[in-house]
């Protein structure tokens, strides 16, 4: 089987404040022989600009897609937001000639043209579809037997169904399967597919805090020792903001939140330091003691 090769799209928020996700992702991908090429001159995926001007989002996303077309490689994103805008733009512009002509009109000003020859995948679909469960299972040398976790896939690797069209948005199984390969148990809990709330935290904190609090409640009730995410924004909501949520509701959760590659990395035999687990706000001390 030939090795998958991707342009890595780290986005903005990961280099800005969540290197731990990128560090752990690169480690496990290398171990799984996924070849990573750095994405030259990329810019913001466009997602945060969709609220201001849809054409702006499409053009910023399309510029990145053009770079991938020129290099001749598909894009892998680590962030759900980047996956949303890049994948959606790629699909829309491939299908809608009128819109493609309009966006190409803008792109012409920067000397580019969208041709529709690339693909966009999120990390979890690279792992499940290209690497395959078998190969991941074989790379697990230290099964996390006895560890109980819950997953939060996040919205944009699942919805809207019409553009993502991979996992079942009502009952997603991809991340659960990926977790089970590590030997850990993946628990079911109430309202697993619900949003973390982070996208509106810039305009309102009350609603996202209540949403995240409810999720942490459900995850804890299920008996999970940690929550596993695959999106930097969801991770920030549950990990970085957890102390604020605890203060707001006067309640302790102490729920570690790991990036999926950190969990997989532990099962592959990487040390916690190699996976930047020390960068987490909520320290997974108990979990790491159990793994030792």
């Amino acid at each position: 089987m030939s090795n998958p090769k991707y342009l890595l799209f780290p986005g903005c928020v990961i280099p800005y404040r969540l290197s731990s996700y990128e560090i752990s992702a690169r480690k496990v991908l290398a171990k799984l022989s996924v070849e990573i090429v750095e994405m030259p001159e990329y810019n913001c995926c466009g997602y945060p600009m969709d609220v201001i001007n849809h054409d702006l989002m499409l053009t910023l996303a399309a510029r990145n897609l053009c770079i991938a077309e020129n290099v001749g490689l598909p894009i892998m994103t680590l962030c759900n937001g980047c996956f949303c805008s890049l994948n959606e733009t790629n699909k829309i512009l491939k299908e809608d000639k009128k819109l493609r002509d309009k966006i190409n009109g803008y792109l012409k000003e920067v000397g580019m043209e969208f041709k529709g020859t690339t693909e966009v995948k999120h990390l979890i679909y690279v792992l499940s579809e290209d690497v395959g469960y078998e190969r991941i299972k074989n790379a697990v040398v230290k099964p996390l037997t006895g560890i109980r976790v819950a997953q939060h896939s996040g919205c944009h690797v699942l919805r809207p169904r019409k553009y993502v069209g991979r996992d079942d948005p009502e009952n997603p199984t991809t991340l659960k399967e990926l977790i089970r390969l590590t030997g850990a148990e993946c628990l079911d809990y109430m309202d697993e597919t619900e949003c973390c709330g982070n996208p509106i935290i810039g305009v309102n904190e009350d609603v996202p805090f209540q949403m995240a609090k409810e999720k942490l409640d459900h995850v804890r009730t299920a008996g999970a020792q940690a929550l596993i995410t695959v999106c930097p924004f969801c991770h920030i909501m549950f990990d970085l903001n957890q102390p604020r949520i605890e203060r707001a509701f006067n309640e302790k959760f102490n729920m570690p939140v790991l990036h999926y590659p950190q969990l997989l990395g532990l099962a592959m035999g990487f040390s916690p330091e190699e996976l930047a687990l020390n960068e987490l706000r909520v320290k997974p001390t108990e979990l790491l003691n159990q793994i030792k």
Binding site: P10, D55, T59, E109
Partner: peptide, 30 residues
């Protein structure tokens, strides 16, 4: 942050083309 990346063993972050980005803001009326 960019320096810390490299210290942590990550490759340097590719430099974006700010001129292109600005142009896109202009031509889309944004």
């Amino acid at each position: 942050r960019l320096q810390k990346r490299v210290e942590q063993g990550l490759p340097p972050l590719p430099k974006p083309n700010v001129k292109d980005v600005m142009k896109i803001f202009e031509v889309t009326g944004s």
